[in-house]
Design a protein around this nucleic acid. Structure first.
Lengths: 239, 239
DNA sequence: AGCGCTATGTGCGATAACGTACAGAGTTTA
DNA sequence: TAAACTCTGTACGTTATCGCACATAGCGCT
């Protein structure tokens, strides 16, 4: 049986009133997500929704030729599987574990039942979905208007916000897949950050040395997304 | 007083059971939307939601330097103002009329009341929101991976699907703002389509001469979005 | 130690889109 | 009718990213 404090590790669940949480408590399962694991394939039904604790999940749009782009990232502040309660059951996107760690999972049907009580859980999940919408929109603009250097900063900061420490375990190849660019492009952009002393890079391990430095370089997209999450999912506004 | 058949012009309202519609019927207002009119500014509260009949509205992400990109387009199949019922009240994006025409509008509070009955209207609006989500995600990928020629085809087809005839009233300058590219780029891409006999172009009037030709040139993004709208908002699946 | 695999770094020509400038044609206004 | 304005077309050098090729370095395995 999970302890109440386990739930506080996920910010979304942490916002729920205790009685709502209690109803679901026995049905949660803690699972370990491994790097690269797929939680959802394009067009497939999901059996579970996942509330990350210290793991990070990327939502990817995959194209016919195999090229992909990350459209949003989900960590302890959110949930993977919004299409379940939105009513579509499936989405055309994939959910891939970008950073290994723990998550709480819940059977899709149970979440749907809770959602359709039209109480705090519904309000919360809808506000979260709107934040996700903003993240996707901003990703679209960023892809259009900002250069790779800035996009890499945005990606690093969004990931960092969802982790405890300052270390990311992620090869340049994988980052390139997320951003939808060439691996060489990431090498070059990351090289600049490394020479500027903002990060150190070593065979799949990125250490962020100077977070403020990254924030100076990043495009506005980062703070637009962050501010909107803060606004929509802050304790005062939600309940 | 509006006639029931007026409502059938909006596909979303057309999917609602009669009794649901009857409850709201007295509160709808028909309005004329003019080209370039703003229905919603970034971060502003919306007082109304709009159900387009024969008008088209673009959702734009505007950046600090004024550059913009369309992240989704809404026509007779949808509604402008999802942030109202999603709970966030505002969004960081703008809603601009891209093609003049009629729409039905409803006071935001009335829609929210209806939404929180947790009945057919809620189910419908949530499914629509998921479709919107897909459109945004696909826009992000398309911005990344496809060239301007293909994106223009996608944009023309998405607009065409939301219009009665084959004529679009839209300057190259405006299309460029939507796609987030240079006006000259649109001139060039449109020139290719014109020379190929697919469209004819004259001072803000585009006539689509060969729709199938456009569908042959367009990237997969168009059909991903269209298929997902069809799946999520088709009569058999919704109610 | 030696081999193979993986991750990173670098170089270079090709390409798409950019910024800018300007010309011409059509439309509106004075 | 002339002037002003709007929309479209064209040209050209610049830049960011791509695609490809290949070098180097770290790590694991035998």
């Amino acid at each position: 049986m999970l302890e109440p404090r386990d739930f506080q590790q996920n910010a979304l669940l942490g916002l729920l009133p205790q009685e709502e949480l209690n109803r679901l408590l026995p049905h949660f399962e803690e699972v370990t997500l491994t790097l690269g694991q797929s939680l959802c394939e394009s067009g497939q039904h999901m059996n579970y929704v996942y509330f990350p604790l210290d793991s990070i999940v990327s939502l990817l749009c995959v194209m016919e030729n195999g090229a992909s782009t990350e459209i949003a990232v989900v960590g302890y502040e959110g949930v993977v599987g919004v299409s379940l309660f939105m009513g579509g059951e499936t989405t055309p996107s994939r959910a891939i574990v970008q950073s290994a760690g723990k998550a709480l999972r819940l059977k899709g049907q149970l979440l749907k039942n809770e959602f359709y009580r039209a109480g705090p859980m519904q309000r919360l999940l809808l506000r979260y979905t709107q934040a996700l919408l903003t993240q996707m929109a901003q990703t679209a603009v960023c892809n259009r208007h900002h250069n790779l250097d800035q996009q890499l900063c945005r990606w690093l900061l969004l990931s960092l916000d969802r982790l405890r420490g300052n270390e990311l375990i992620m090869t340049q190849e994988l980052i390139a897949n997320m951003l939808g660019v060439r691996r060489e492009g990431v090498t070059e952009a990351a090289g600049k950050l490394q020479r500027a002393g903002l990060i150190s890079y070593h065979r799949g391990h990125i250490n962020v040395l100077d977070r403020l430095g990254l924030e100076e370089r990043v495009c506005e997209c980062y703070s637009v997304v962050k501010d909107e999450y803060d606004r929509l999912l802050n304790h005062h506004n939600v309940m």
